[in-house]
């Protein structure tokens, strides 16, 4: 066991990093779907916008990264507010119409971004001070990924505390459970809706800023990020923060450890896992249990 873990340590840690990145991106999608009943297929575009922000603003220093984070969060929040505004008229028309609208927005923004930044995948370097490697139990490992794991884990903890332990979170969860009852108590639902959409979108864009050195911006990245987040959200269970975390960590391991262990089945692992989980547990991993 110890020997196995030693041999696959890098894959496992990579999987944690990737899983936490997926959580940062996907939790917004899950909340927007669970709360607002909006299927937002423009979610990958928010990641892409964040990643391009990181590319444009990062100058190899830590303050540059912090500036990019602030700018990315702002871009994401504005994008989320705009998407709320655009999807509100379709609220009563079902998910498919929302899918058409948000996919159309994805195509338009992707085309404009490609026109602005070109058709190549742009490698984005982390700040110079985080560029080295460290010794991790006998393996060399990039510093930036470890820092990323710490930051993303802190973000996940923050999201968990806000949604599960604060009164604001209670309001949001109550809106998920029974929107009309919350409205009947005199709460302006629209503020909650705009707030959650903007927050979830900002998280996705922040994920883009932080994730740019791992999964760099380029054409087609929005689609792959969207598909991965959808898989995470559906595997984890729609509308649940803990579900998104469980799904993200599982998919992160599948995409790194699974691919390292079973390279010949690599192309089938992601969707094979999703198929398996959904057949056994059609409503996702959470709420009942985190273990499969």
């Amino acid at each position: 066991m110890a020997g196995w873990l030693d041999g696959n340590l890098v894959s496992v840690v990579d999987g944690i990093a990737f899983g936490l990145l997926l959580f940062t991106i996907a939790v917004g999608l899950s909340l927007v779907f669970g709360m607002m009943d909006v299927l937002n297929l423009a979610h990958g575009t928010l990641y892409l916008a964040g990643a391009y922000t990181a590319y444009a603003l990062s100058d190899g220093t830590v303050p540059g990264l912090l500036l990019a984070l602030a700018a990315g969060a702002l871009v994401g929040a504005l994008g989320g507010a705009a998407l709320t505004l655009l999807t509100q008229p379709l609220a009563r028309r079902g998910h498919l119409d929302q899918a058409v609208l948000t996919l159309g927005i994805t195509f338009i923004v992707a085309d404009l971004l490609a026109a602005a930044f070109g058709g190549e995948v742009l490698p984005t370097d982390p700040p110079a001070s985080l560029r080295g490697t460290v010794d991790l139990l006998g393996h060399t490992y990039p510093v930036y990924r470890l820092v990323f794991i710490a930051v993303a884990a802190a973000l996940a903890l923050l999201v968990h505390l806000v949604f599960e332990r604060s009164s604001l979170g209670a309001l949001v969860r109550a809106t998920v459970a029974d929107r009309d009852m919350v409205r009947a108590q005199g709460v302006d639902i629209r503020k909650v809706l705009y707030g959650v959409f903007a927050f979830g979108a900002a998280l996705a864009a922040v994920g883009g800023v932080l994730g740019a050195p791992i999964l760099g911006p380029g054409p087609g990245v929005d689609e792959s990020v969207l598909v991965l987040s959808l898989v995470v959200v559906v595997v984890g269970g729609l509308g649940s923060v803990r579900g998104a975390l469980a799904g993200a960590l599982l998919i992160g391991q599948v995409q790194t450890l699974g691919v390292a262990l079973l390279p010949q089945y690599a192309p089938f692992l992601l969707f094979g896992t999703m198929l398996l989980v959904l057949v056994v547990r059609p409503h996702g991993l959470v709420p009942s249990a985190v273990r499969t």
Binding site: V100, L101, L103, G104, I105, T106, F107, I108, A110
Partner: peptide, 13 residues
């Protein structure tokens, strides 16, 4: 893709 996106947005509204 731009034209297709515009088509979808216009059609849905």
């Amino acid at each position: 893709p731009l034209l297709l996106g515009l088509l979808f947005v216009i059609a849905v509204y």
